[in-house]
Design a protein around this nucleic acid. Structure first.
Lengths: 351, 351
DNA sequence: GAGTGTGACTAGAGCGCTTCAGTACGTCCA
DNA sequence: TGGACGTACTGAAGCGCTCTAGTCACACTC
């Protein structure tokens, strides 16, 4: 009951009566043969059920796999609960897809990154790392394979292309705006400083030793304005629920903060809800600022003041970079994208 | 300035002074050689910077690519705005990742599915299709390549493994509960019935000819209880914003519906907001029911009555099915998962 | 001491494709 | 008429690996 072997280039070549090279050319270099012959080859291929050159064999021969690996710091559901990540990833996907490249996803499982075994077996010839801890084993595994790397929101490793935004400056911008409105009692909400699942107030020593550049820069941008004594609450992930719980804790301190600076919009949405939970109002009683400017920020209740970073553009740039590295290009200088403060109704001077 | 060629199995074999097969065995069948030799091989490999067998070459030789393709109906950001999809995908990813398989993502671009070119070049040896329109070109492309297919939430194509839930029954369940509470004036909100981006009220003829099985079944489940005359609003995507706009429209009709049946939780969240927008209260003035029971449903304000489907389980099952097909297994009977109604505070008898 | 294992390693034939260096046959121009 | 050039196609050498069918040496058995 052996099912018929799948047709190969040879099968088609034999059927048409030409050499294998010619059939290959029919698919890859149509200008190398006469239109008539090409036509005949395609027809025969179709009638034999040949669906084109096998991608794996092609990859082996060309030494290009036409795939871009994407390494995530967390599991998929956690990752995609984060609208910012989704938008970045979408920008990346459209870029590489336009060049007939696939995206190979490597979800985080092990110490803030994909498992090294997963990395070792992935068929990709360039890898994009998104917000992994600086010491993720997955990064070492990519290195070991000698694949080029593009990092997003992460310190550049040696010989690595990078796209990033000015997280420190952006955070400073938001904090400064609030300061100028007259706020003096702040609370800061950050997402993971370490990949250990911690939720709660952050000790100064933990603040100083973070493994994620993004949280570090945003946090320090806030504190640069509000002062080192500002209470900081850490959420293990950037989720609305965790943000809600954290904000509730921060707002229960006394004296109560008049402004909450959140390291992401998602956290800020939670904070908005927490303020309501406590029977208070935004911005009358508490101002709330976010970071990212995801689409939902504009439609939040009230519309959220936040730091805009060009998310889709970030993904697109990473895609371009990846494509360039694929072509043998050199990493070059990091691409740095501008941020700006978007003032909406969730912030106002304190009463 | 030609950079040194990457080491291969042969390089290592030469350096150690054994045959290539032995080095291969050191990686793949440790029991085939003495521990001492294996140790020596691994050391030499490490010192040469050899990171293990090349995945592409291995795939060509074994004819397994250790990758599972995943075809999406929409772009990534749209897809992942949908918590249900994220959870399913996460379940799938954990399953296949546990078996050292990667996930190759193919985002929708063309008529409700990935582009056929993308499919043709993807290095995967089984493909999971999630909620694509029944006639997506991508499906045909997978067929042409002769790859096994697992479909989630879609009618089984010939010779295809399938996992699904009882969408019709679940929708009926929710509608019936509301009916029994005394509701008689309903509004129904559905996500895309066709891949044409339509937002607005749905004509009976459009209701009858939908390309997505899921929306069809849920819609008909609702209408089976509420009657064919019930106003139906279609949102192009399952998003909170679109749901909010749709619900606002539905609630502006007169007489105003006392209950809104939503084909997804995301849509229902929008509806919750729309009710507030209009100065009304849930459930006192309007009852709202969702579908999926994503985690946020429990924390919504008020907590959402919804139809629970085992999302993670759905992904896991799809993963198992994919793995089985990879092993040459036959598709077999569709896996059907149970749904149940979760009653929370967003529904109550009408005033 | 012939027969029978058995554990450790190897030779070499693929896997299905790309690509480079040809060959064969016109065509064109002087 | 002969050489230069172009176009259309072919032969064969890889790409880096796996895996089957060995070989070889060294016990062990009766």
């Amino acid at each position: 009951m052996d099912r018929p072997r799948k047709p190969t280039l040879d099968t088609v070549a034999g059927a048409v009566g030409v050499s294998r090279a010619t059939v290959s050319n029919a698919y890859n270099r149509p200008d190398q043969l006469s239109a008539a012959l090409r036509e005949r080859i395609m027809e025969t291929a179709a009638s034999l059920g040949y669906a084109g050159p096998d991608p794996v064999a092609r990859s082996l021969a060309t030494r290009h796999s036409a795939a871009v690996g994407f390494m995530l710091g967390q599991g998929l559901s956690a990752s995609f609960a984060d609208a910012a990540l989704s938008i970045v990833l979408d920008g990346l996907a459209s870029t590489v897809d336009g060049h007939d490249h696939c995206l190979v996803l490597m979800p985080g499982r092990d110490k803030g990154g994909p498992r090294p075994e997963t990395v070792a077996r992935a068929q990709a010839d360039v890898v994009v790392a998104y917000s992994l801890p600086d010491d993720a084993p997955a990064l070492a595994a990519v290195r070991a394979r000698g694949l080029p790397i593009v990092v997003i929101d992460q310190p550049a490793l040696l010989d690595t292309a990078r796209v990033e935004v000015d997280d420190f400056g952006g955070a400073r911008l938001a904090a400064a705006a609030l300061w100028e409105m007259g706020h003096r009692r702040f609370g800061v909400m950050t997402f993971a400083l370490h990949a250990d699942g911690h939720n709660g107030l952050v000790s100064p020593v933990r603040q100083a030793s973070t493994s994620f550049r993004v949280s570090r820069d945003r946090l320090h941008g806030y504190l640069d304005v509000t002062g080192a004594g500002t209470p900081v609450w850490e959420c293990a992930r950037s989720s609305r629920e965790l943000g809600r719980a954290g904000a509730r804790a921060l707002l229960s301190e006394s004296p109560r903060p008049t402004a909450l600076l959140c390291a992401s919009d998602e956290l800020a949405f939670g904070a908005l809800q927490a303020v309501r939970d406590l029977g208070l109002r935004v911005p009358a009683d508490v101002s709330v600022a976010g970071f990212d400017d995801v689409p939902a920020a504009e439609h939040a209740d009230p519309p959220l003041t936040t730091v805009r970073q060009p998310l889709a553009e970030k993904g697109r740039q990473a895609g371009e970079l990846a494509l360039r590295l694929l072509d043998g290009g050199r990493p070059g200088e990091p691409t740095r994208l501008a941020v700006s403060l978007v003032s909406r109704d969730s912030t106002a001077p304190p009463k």
